[in-house]
Each structure stands twice: as structure tokens, then as C-alpha cells.
Design a protein around this nucleic acid. Structure first.
Length: 456
RNA sequence: GGCGCGGUAGCCAAGUGGUAAGGCCGAGCUCUGCAAAAGCUCUAUGCGCCGGUUCAAUUCCGGCCCGCGCCUCCA
């Protein structure tokens, strides 16, 4: 079953396929900047890309997919963070890289096959800039920085339609860019390939033919993609915000440098909104995985919730959606427990995969899955069900962490159980009321009982 | 101002030119000393508004209203 995905460049739905003779599908996903914990909006993109990675493996075979996701470990934000904390840059980026990895693992995201860093590929970046200089696509400005000359690339703007945008520059853009622009660029549209060292950069500088400095943001993806996947890749993905300027600039750099098509397919996932707005610190609606965990939500519930919206549509995240996800996962877990190991008809799940392969329609896939689940377990076995879980990346063994039961609650529960055994129901009911007042629920079975915090 | 996306039940959210998936919540029932859990059942004559095309539109076309995102280093 072919995987179809919208291509942001050609603006149409296309079938994914490998182009290299080795049959390996080359997939590059723009990764995070490691200066702070990633928020759940970042993880929406990574979880969506993880589902894509899993589908690619199912489609082409696990050995025939090469997935690269970079780490941006040198830029204004990482350097500023290091400076503010008085620590070496590498310390800061190591800390947040480790955190990112831990969060990804908790969300059951498969690690990429290669996870290159910008600082680990200075030479590759310098080499590309060198070629761009030789070919006349770049110039060194008076401040020592090297810029890409946008007018030198006729194809500039094809991805983001930036040319149409510039026909009528609104006040918002012109005011902003003039205020922020202290560079020596020949044209406001030009962007930095190599940034000359400034005092605020501290020790974070490397030698280059154009003097000490550091690479611009955009060139890292071009260089790392080229090194690990070759000049032409099969798919390049990221969040919509990267469409312009980041991906537009990548295309310009790579195609001018290599003289060949950069990526055969571009895919951008939409943003996560919280309470109807984009997440931001100033709005106070920015969540991290740790915050949700502290509220008692499991990472798997977040993964599920992040997949309940179509990846190409903004998804409005609410805390309620985590409760819904938790309940849905519980139902899937209960269903799975009723299944025999083998012997089912895998074709039953065709509608689920059809939805996933049709532009990663994860909400449609969940709908199809529950339609099947609601019909009952007849004809379904564990192997085929687990294939669905694999594609969605749902690990049903992950449950909400159990809350610690205070000693006094344990004692009350024991007293009530004793009263119940003695058929003193009045006392048992009174004790249940006490437990309820204390925020605990006692779940009786025939022979035993469990304690759970009351649901809010 | 430009570019892009969207408005479907209390909430979240698929989808289709032929009469609305699914999850949550809620209600009822079964079960249970009670409660919870679990199981079963029910819950949009309706898909932002107004026109048009059509035998038929939520789905196509036009207009309008509203919301959101992006517009130089934010996934």
C-alpha cells in the first residue's frame, strides 16, 4: 500500500518512493535546538515524523529507510543560554540533548539512524560555503560575515512563494526587519552562511577562510543532509514554521552548491495550539512533557493526544484531550488482553493502514481502529493488532504512574475492608465517605481492593 | 498588506455529490450490600452565514462573517 503525502513544494499529494539504486529511502527531519526542554508542540512534529518513519519501515523494510534528524547545538539561543549560565556551550547542549532523548524515548519515538550536530560538521559547512563563494552565490560583507545572494538563485521562493509575499510588503515586516537588521547585507533577503565572531559569541568560534566565526543556521541542514544522505534526498520534513525561511534557504544553498535537486519531496506538519492559540511563554500556555507528567498524565497519553488531529491541520490541545487519550488507551489495552497470539486475519486492519498511508491521517486511523475494536475480537490476533500499534507507536505497557498511597489512607482502607468482611455495611460506608473526603477511591473486588486517587 | 489553514454535537476530531467515523463527557440499563471498574444502549434532521450549480451539497462554485498561523534564524 503506497504512502501518499502532500508535497509542500509541488503542492500536491505524491507517493513516497526511494530514488537511489540501493532502494534506501532517504529521510531528513529538522531536529530541535538544544537550549531548553522541548515543548509539546515540538513533540507533535517529532511524533508525527515518528509515525511516518514507522510507515516507511513497514512499506520499504526497516533496513531500507535511513532517517536523519539533526541537533542544532550552536546558534544565538544556545550561545545566549551558555553565556547566561556561565557554562561552556557543549555543557548546555549536552544537558538538553540528553533531556530531548529521554522525552523522545518516553514518547516511544524511534531514534533516527543518524543524529548529526552542527558543531560536529563545521568542515562540511565551510566546504559548502566555499563552493558557493566560488560559484558566485555568496559574498563576504564588510563585517566579515558571508551571505548568500538570494538574487543569484532563480528558483528562490518556489517553496514559500516568497516572491508573491514581497510584492506588497506590509508594515509589520518592513518595520521589524529594519529594526533587527544590523548586518551588512547587500539585500535584506540575503541570509548569513557564516557569521563573523562577535564578543557575545565568546569561545564559540571556528576558523574559516573568511576568518573566525560560526555557521549560520540554514547551512547546517544542507551540509549534514548532504554528508549523511547524499545530494538528493527523498523526503525533507519539519514544522510549518520552517518552510520560510529555513527550508527555502536550504534549497537555495544546496541546489546552488550541488547543482542538483535537493529534496524530491517536502512535508510540513502544522502547529499545535493550546486553548486556541500558539504556545508561548507570554501567553502562559506552554507545556513540557515533565509538566504533564507532574499532573499525572502518561507520556503515551500525550502521544495519543498529539495524533488525534490531522498532521496538516492545526490541533487544539487541551488537558481534557489527555483524559480522553488515557481512556482510549485503556480500552485498547483491555481489547489487546483478549486476543490470541496468532491466527487472525490481518486484512481486518486494512482500513487503519489505508488511513495512515493516506497522508498520515492519524485521526482517521483511530476512528477505523475503534470501529474494528468495537466489533469485538473475532478474527483478530495479537500479531496483526501489534502491527497497528507499531505503526502508531503506541506502547500499551506504559501506564500512568501510580500515586503513592499515604499510610493513613492505607489504614482507613484496611479498616473498611474489615468492616465489610464483617458485613458491617454502615461502618464500611462511613469509612468510604472518609476516604472520599480525603480524595481517595476504594475499588472493591470479590477478594481484594485497590486504592486510586479520585478523578478530578 | 501578503501568503497559508480552518469553522462538523458539551469538548476533541475524521469524512463524503446521495443523506454525518471515532474518542471523551453525559444519560439509561446490567452487574455490585454501597461505590467504582467492566459490559450493553442512547446522544448532530445537522456540518459558520447567504446565494448558485445539481434529481440530490455538509461535500462543488461565488460572496460574506469569524478564528488561527506564518511573513528572516519558532516544530
Amino acid at each position: 500500500m503506497a504512502i501518499q503525502l502532500f508535497d509542500s513544494l509541488e503542492r500536491k499529494i505524491k507517493v513516497l518512493s526511494p530514488s537511489h539504486p540501493d532502494g534506501v529511502f532517504r529521510f531528513y527531519n529538522c531536529g530541535p535546538t538544544v537550549y531548553a526542554p522541548a515543548h509539546i508542540g515540538n513533540f507533535r512534529t517529532f511524533v508525527v515524523n515518528d509515525v511516518l518513519r514507522r510507515l516507511l519501515e513497514l512499506e520499504f523494510g526497516a533496513a531500507k529507510v535511513k532517517h536523519v534528524r539533526n541537533l542544532t547545538d550552536v546558534d544565538d539561543k544556545t550561545i545566549r543560554r551558555a553565556r547566561e549560565e556561565g557554562r561552556p556551550l557543549a555543557d548546555v547542549t549536552k544537558q538538553w540533548t540528553d533531556k530531548f532523548h529521554a522525552d523522545c524515548a518516553a514518547l516511544n519515538c524511534l531514534p533516527p539512524h543518524v543524529e548529526p550536530t552542527a558543531t560536529g560538521h563545521i568542515k562540511e559547512q565551510v566546504d559548502m560555503i566555499d563552493v558557493l563563494m566560488q560559484k558566485g552565490n555568496a559574498y563576504r560583507a564588510a563585517d566579515g560575515s558571508v551571505y548568500f545572494k538570494v538574487t543569484s538563485f532563480a528558483g528562490y521562493g518556489a517553496l514559500s512563494r516568497v516572491k508573491e509575499r514581497e510584492l506588497q510588503l506590509g508594515s509589520a515586516l518592513s518595520g521589524k526587519s529594519q529594526a533587527a537588521d544590523a548586518d551588512e547585507k547587500e539585500d535584506v533577503s540575503d541570509f548569513a552562511l557564516w557569521k563573523a565572531h562577535k564578543p557575545d559569541d565568546g569561545a564559540n568560534a571556528w576558523d574559516s577562510p573568511w576568518g573566525r566565526g560560526r555557521p549560520g543556521w540554514h547551512i547546517e541542514c544542507s551540509a549534514m543532509s548532504k554528508k549523511h544522505l547524499g545530494e538528493t534526498i527523498d523526503l525533507h520534513t519539519g514544522g510549518v514554521d520552517l518552510l520560510f525561511p529555513h527550508h527555502e534557504n536550504e534549497i537555495a544553498q544546496s541546489e546552488c552548491c550541488n547543482g542538483s535537486q535537493f529534496s524530491r519531496h517536502w512535508y510540513h506538519s502544522e502547529h499545535l495550539l493550546v486553548d486556541g492559540k500558539k504556545m508561548s511563554k507570554s501567553l502562559g500556555n506552554l507545556y513540557t512533557l515533565d509538566q504533564l507528567k507532574e499532573m499525572g498524565h502518561s507520556p503515551m497519553a500525550l502521544r495519543y493526544a498529539l495524533l488525534t488531529g490531522h498532521p496538516r491541520k492545526q490541533l487544539n490541545f487541551t488537558l481534557d484531550s489527555l483524559h480522553a487519550a488515557e481512556s482510549a488507551l485503556k480500552a485498547l489495552r483491555a481489547f489487546r488482553a483478549t486476543l490470541p497470539a496468532v491466527g487472525g486475519d490481518a486484512a481486518i486492519f486494512t482500513p487503519v493502514f489505508a488511513a495512515l498511508n493516506d497522508e498520515l491521517n492519524t485521526p482517521g486511523a483511530f476512528g477505523a481502529l475503534f470501529t474494528i475494536v468495537n466489533r469485538g475480537p473475532q478474527g483478530i490476533s495479537l500479531d496483526s493488532f501489534d502491527r497497528v500499534l507499531f505503526a502508531l507507536g503506541l506502547n500499551l505497557d506504559v501506564t500512568t504512574p501510580k500515586a503513592e498511597v499515604p499510610a493513613e489512607i492505607t489504614a482507613l482502607a484496611a479498616k473498611r475492608w474489615a468492616a465489610k468482611q464483617a458485613k458491617d455495611f454502615a461502618a464500611a460506608d462511613a469509612l468510604r465517605k472518609e476516604l472520599t473526603a480525603a480524595g481517595w477511591s476504594m475499588l472493591d473486588s470479590k477478594t481484594d481492593y485497590k486504592l486510586e486517587p479520585l478523578k478530578k
